[in-house]
Design a protein around this nucleic acid. Structure first.
Lengths: 280, 280
DNA sequence: AGTTGAGTGTAACGTAATGTACACTATGAT
DNA sequence: ATCATAGTGTACATTACGTTACACTCAACT
C-alpha cells in the first residue's frame, strides 16, 4: 500500500478512474464535490446521499486500495489535517511568487469584462452577424485568442477564416466590403498583423480591433476597437485577455444569432456523434 | 442551547473555563491544541490521548452545553466545514447572475494558481527540462491552451511539437522513452486526444496531463496530472484555464532553464529584428 | 475522626456502524 | 436467444462506540 501514501484523494481516484463502475463513479463524483462526506460521514450516510447501498461504498474504498471504508476515511482525514495545519507555511513558499501574477491576471480579466459592460461587444457582434465573411488576424501573444475566436465563431456561423502568418496575400484575395475583419494585436505590434488590418480596410471590409490602447496602430485604423490590458506572465505577454475577449465575443454573437446558432451547433454535434469524436 | 450556536469551540470553552475540573481542563487543553482530535476522534481515542476515561470526555461535552459527545463533535465538524470551503466555492454561493460569468472565470483562474501552489508545475517543469522531445496534444476547448503551450515552450527550448488533429500516427512515430507528452483535455474528452496520450505512454514517454478532475481518462493514465476547473462561457467551455495553465507552466520552465532559455529568446529576438517582424 | 459530596474510573448496556456471504439483476458476447 | 460474468443489493454477523449506572477515592468541613 505504498502507492497511496502521500497522495491526495483525488489523485487516488485518478489512478483507478478508468476501472470504476457506474455507481462507483457516482460515489466518486459525490465525494469529490463534497469532501466532508468522506471525512465526517458514515458509510450509511454516504450511501444514502449517493443513492446506493452500503456495500458499494465499501467496495469503492477497496478499489482505491484500502482495506475498508475506515482506512479510506482515515486517509482523507490525514490529508485534511495536513491541509488545516499548514496554511502559514504555504504562504511562504510559492504563494507570494504567484500572487503578483495572479492579481495582474485577474485585473486583466476585469478589463475584458469592462469592455463587455461598455457594450462594445454588442456593437462588434452586430457587424459579425451581418457580415458575409469573417476574417481573423492575430499577432504572437494573441495567437491563442485568434484560434479561440476562429474556433468559436466557426461553431455558430459559416465563412470564418483565420489568416495565416505568411499567406496574407493568398488568404485575403476574396475579401470584400461586405466582410468583417477581426484583428488582435498587442504590445509589440506585428507588421504582418497590421498589414492584414490595413489590407482588409482598403478592401472595404469593416475592421474590428482588440488591442491594448489608443496608441496602437490598430486604433487609428478603425473606430471599432476596444482596449484590454495585457500583463506579463514570466518572460512573455499573456494571451489570456485575448482568449477571454474572444470567448465573450463569441458568446455575444451566439446570443444574437439565437436559433441560427443553435441549429448550427446541433448539426455539428450530431456530426461529432456520428464520427465518434468523443471518449469513450 | 442558543448560547452555543455560531460560537467557535474555543469560545465555548472560554465561557465555562472557570468551572472546569482538573481532568476536564486537561481535555480542554488537548482539544485546543489539536482540534482534529475532536473533529475526527472517538471518545475512546480522546480519552486515551488525554489519559483519562471515556465518561470524563462525555461529561466534558455535557459541561459545554451539549447533550453528549456526538453533539459536540457535530458542532466542531460544522465549524470545520465552513472553514474548509474554498474561496472558489464561496464565490459561487454569492449568486449574482450578471457577475456569474466573471466570477466563474476568476474562480477558474484561481484553480490554476492552486496548481502552482501545490508545486505541480515545478514537477512538470523538471520533466520538460530533461526531455529529449516534447509533444503537445489537446482537445477542442483546450486547443488554445495547446497553441499557447507550444508557442511558449518553443521560445525557451527546442524540439517542441504540436500533435495535429488527424495526424497522430505521422506525428508520433518518432516519440520515445526520453520524451515528454503534455496533454490537455476537458469535459467531453476527445477520442483523438486520449489516443495520443495512450500512444505516448505506450511508447514509454512521460505523460503530463492537465485535465478537469480525477475521473478524466487522462488521470488514470499517469500519476503526473493536475486539475483545473473549466467554466462555461456562453454556449462553450472556456479555454482560459488551459491557456493560463500553459503560460504559467512555460513561465516555470523558463525559470528552470535560466540562461539557456535567455540565450534562445535572444536569438529569436535578433532574428525577428533582422526580418522586421514588428511594426513600425 | 467521621461524614458528606464532588470527582473519577469500571463495568455493562443498547445502538449503530462496518464488513462479508450470498442471491439477484443487468449487460455483453457467442 | 442463451449463457457467462461483472455489478449491485439484501441479510446477517461482528465489532466498536457512546452512554449510563454504579462503585470507589479523595478532599473539605463538621
Amino acid at each position: 500500500m505504498y502507492t497511496m501514501m502521500n497522495k491526495t484523494t483525488s489523485q487516488l481516484i485518478g489512478t483507478v478512474s478508468d476501472r470504476l463502475t457506474r455507481t462507483e463513479r457516482r460515489i466518486a463524483q459525490a465525494v469529490l464535490e463534497e469532501p466532508t462526506l468522506l471525512a465526517f460521514g458514515t458509510v450509511s450516510a454516504l450511501a444514502e446521499h449517493v443513492g446506493t447501498s452500503r456495500p458499494s461504498i465499501v467496495r469503492f474504498a477497496a478499489k482505491l486500495g484500502f482495506k475498508g471504508y475506515r482506512e479510506l476515511q482515515a486517509h482523507v482525514r490525514q490529508g485534511l489535517s495536513d491541509h488545516l495545519s499548514r496554511p502559514a507555511d504555504r504562504i511562504r513558499s510559492e504563494y507570494n511568487v504567484a500572487e503578483a501574477g495572479r492579481s495582474e491576471l485577474v485585473a486583466a480579466l476585469e478589463s475584458v469584462f469592462d469592455v463587455v459592460e461598455q457594450g462594445r461587444f454588442r456593437e462588434f457582434s452586430k457587424h459579425i452577424v451581418g457580415a458575409n465573411r469573417v476574417w481573423v488576424a492575430t499577432g504572437e501573444s494573441s495567437r491563442a485568442g485568434g484560434y479561440a475566436l476562429h474556433s468559436g465563431l466557426s461553431m455558430v456561423r459559416e465563412n470564418v477564416h483565420l489568416i495565416g502568418e505568411n499567406s496574407i496575400a493568398n488568404d485575403l484575395t476574396d475579401a470584400g466590403p461586405a466582410d468583417v475583419g477581426i484583428v488582435f494585436d498587442f504590445q509589440r505590434y506585428r507588421r504582418a498583423t497590421v498589414l492584414s488590418a490595413k489590407t482588409l480596410a482598403s478592401l472595404g471590409a469593416t475592421v474590428l480591433a482588440i488591442t491594448d490602447g489608443p496608441l496602437s496602430p490598430l486604433a487609428s485604423m478603425t473606430e471599432h476597437w476596444c482596449q484590454v490590458s495585457v500583463p506579463a506572465v514570466g518572460p512573455f505577454d499573456s494571451s489570456v485577455p485575448a482568449v477571454t475577449a474572444a470567448e465573450l465575443l463569441v458568446s455575444q454573437v451566439a446570443q444574437d444569432l439565437k436559433d441560427s446558432a443553435r441549429r448550427r451547433i446541433d448539426r455539428i454535434e450530431s456530426l461529432w456523434d456520428a464520427t465518434s469524436t468523443f471518449y469513450p
